[in-house]
Amino acid sequence: MSSVSRVLAGVTAVAAVALTGCATKGVPYQTPSSSSSAAAAPTTAAAAPTVSMTPVPAASGQLTGTQLETVLLPQSFFPTGFTLSSSSVVSSGAVLSSSPPQYDLATVDCGTFVNHFGNTGFGETALASVSAAGQSQAYDQVVYQFGTPAAAAAFVAGVTSVAGRCRSFTATSNGATGTFGLKAAPGPAVGGHPSLELTQTGVLNHSALSIDTVMSASGVDVFAGAAVGLAAAVPTGLAPATIAYNLMKRQAAAAVLGGS
């Protein structure tokens, strides 16, 4: 959620001067202390509380990436110290896409996956995402929209398969190389829909990186929220499932207003 790819890009900018990941491309992370290292891995954070969730109808209709941008959670949703950056916005734009997948989740290289997850190229009809960055931490949010509910569910299943074969790998982003691992497990129900919890851990430029993403397929959409920590524990003010749930509710309202 994160997007892991944008996480890597954003973290790399910090580490190099660093997620989707993400922390995000262009997000103004604070540079970790020079004493941060693989040996000084983030401490494990307590799980963030999730909000009480009522069922949300399956997402339907087709919104463009530009319209999905209005679904993304506003600055007021995030805890103090986390700032949305307009430069971190990723959108598929004002036209629905009909392009076939550029990245096949059944065969995509692990490094390629983390460098593109949270961006276009997975056969979606539209996408929008943005991150809120803080001191060595971030929250990420993304909405992937597909042509059919089956395609949305297949995307989540594909991510599960990627995690199964990417338990340890090396990836390079913006000149920085890191060693990472992915793990997937069933996550909490989000608005009455099943979810996947994708965990990424690793080391980037001697700083420990942790990303906890929850993604849920609902109708034609996949909603994802993520919490990211670089040389720090992942933030706990918001649960990734809470981010995904609120995106789900906002999409339902946007689809109705848009007449979809």
Score class of each variant (00 low, 15 high):
G93S: 02
Q141V: 09
I243L: 11
A48D: 07
A18W: 00
A255F: 04
T172F: 08
G118H: 03
F77N: 07
V156F: 08
V51D: 13
T213I: 05
T54R: 14
S168Q: 13
Q75M: 04
G65F: 02
A132R: 07
A46V: 09
N119D: 11
V214C: 02
L196M: 11
P188G: 10
F146M: 09
G192E: 11
G147E: 03
R165Y: 05
A128G: 10
L63Y: 05
V4G: 01
A185I: 11
A153W: 01
P186V: 13
N119H: 11
S33D: 13
S2Y: 04
V90W: 02
N174D: 13
A163M: 00
S52G: 06
M1H: 10
A253V: 15
G61T: 08
A106V: 05
A47H: 10
A39Y: 07
A226R: 04
F113L: 12
N205K: 13
V14N: 10
V51L: 07
S218E: 00
A132E: 07
F82L: 10
Q145D: 12
G61D: 08
A13I: 07
L63H: 10
F113K: 02
H206P: 02
Q145L: 15
S76T: 15
Y139M: 10
L230C: 05
F82Y: 15
G202S: 05
S173Y: 12
A23W: 01
G192I: 08
D212Q: 13
G229D: 11
V90G: 03
D140R: 00
A157K: 13
K25G: 14
A254L: 12
P186L: 10
A126P: 08
I211G: 01
A254E: 14
Q251S: 13
V4M: 05
Q135G: 00
M1D: 03
V11C: 12
R250P: 05
A241R: 00
A46C: 01
S98L: 03
Q102A: 15
T199C: 03
S85L: 04
G147N: 13
A227R: 11
L63W: 04
C22I: 09
T20V: 11
V256N: 10
P28L: 12
Y245H: 09
F82N: 03
L96E: 09
S161P: 00
V51A: 14
L72Y: 06
V159D: 06
L8Q: 07
P235W: 01
G121D: 07
P74Q: 12
A171T: 04
S5F: 00
A244W: 07
Q30H: 09
A47E: 14
F78L: 12
V14F: 02
V114H: 01
